[in-house]
Design a protein around this nucleic acid. Sequence first.
DNA 1: CAATCGTGGAA
DNA 2: TTTCCAAGATT
Length: 353
Amino acid sequence: MLALADFSTHLIAWQRVHGRHDLPWQNTRDPYWIWLSEIMLQQTQVSTVIPYYARFLARFPDVNALAAAPLDDVMALWAGLGYYSRARNLHRCAQAVSAEYGGHFPQTVDELAELPGIGRSTAAAIASFAFGARATILDGNVKRVLARVFGIEGFPGEKRVENTMWTLAESLLPDAAHKDDVTAYTQGLMDLGATLCVRGKPDCARCPFAVDCVANVTGRQRELPAARPKKTVPTRKTWMLVLKSGDTVLLEKRPPTGIWGGLWSLPEAADEAALVAVAHSFGGADALQRLSPLTHTFTHFKLDIEPRLGESRGRLIQAADAETVWAPLADIDSFGLPAPVRKLLNALQGSLI
DNA sequence: CAATCGTGGAA
DNA sequence: TTTCCAAGATT
């Protein structure tokens, strides 16, 4: 039987030898670097984050630079990474740190968790990595490790199960005598879940907890943690307008909340007739050319996109209640666009010019 | 508190 | 091809 006190000891020893030590956000105690990585890594894989992280730091080298930047610039660098409330909260958080803390991140979990976009687990990760605080994280990696090693039943997304895991995770922290090891411990939790205790085929032979792990001993690796309850994802349909004027295309800024909030995108309508009316209001002809439809899958719904191509002569802007712009196709990469819209326009740029 | 909020990798 | 979901937070 694995004594709770032994968990952190074994994990720390394992991390120092077998854990990851060369990720771009490691080997620093700069809370800005660490905070940025933690936000980008929320629900996002390491390999996806790395190129975004490098570009972001090059453009915004410190929290004050980020705070002073227009939100639009932040969104443009975040475009393609998904979950855009993270980018909006990131900007708000930078402004709060700059204005309320003189550009220095607070060091306690409670203060960190009050900042926009920083929840309980992210606050603990920042406090642990940047300030060596004895703080408990509970991300997807930890939930998977705990569910397997300790045989925690139930879907971790369920509140009751998550509360159980928080309590267990708190009890596993290294004690005050090993406070200097909390960084290795926190990193070890993530490393174990990300490199050995993976979802598909966990490498139990290399795991320091193999002989004690409930899932391994009982052969239930595939059943723990319990899968998310299945739901049928609804399908929505939208018509998108690619209205050109010379070498520019009409873009609209999306509202600050909701799907793709704060990004630039193509004008949309609920049916083809409504889209023709939109095109007409911007100087487009009545006839729109049909383009190949595309499907975009979100976590909670599927979107069927019917693109239509039109040409506008006058670059007419109707009432400017929505932010609109004629974007040069050559500069299209400088706009924060949703992934499928970027793909659509990039494909068009190749075929039309 | 369950729903909302992206995208791409992996099996 | 389909399914699942990844260093979660917010409402």
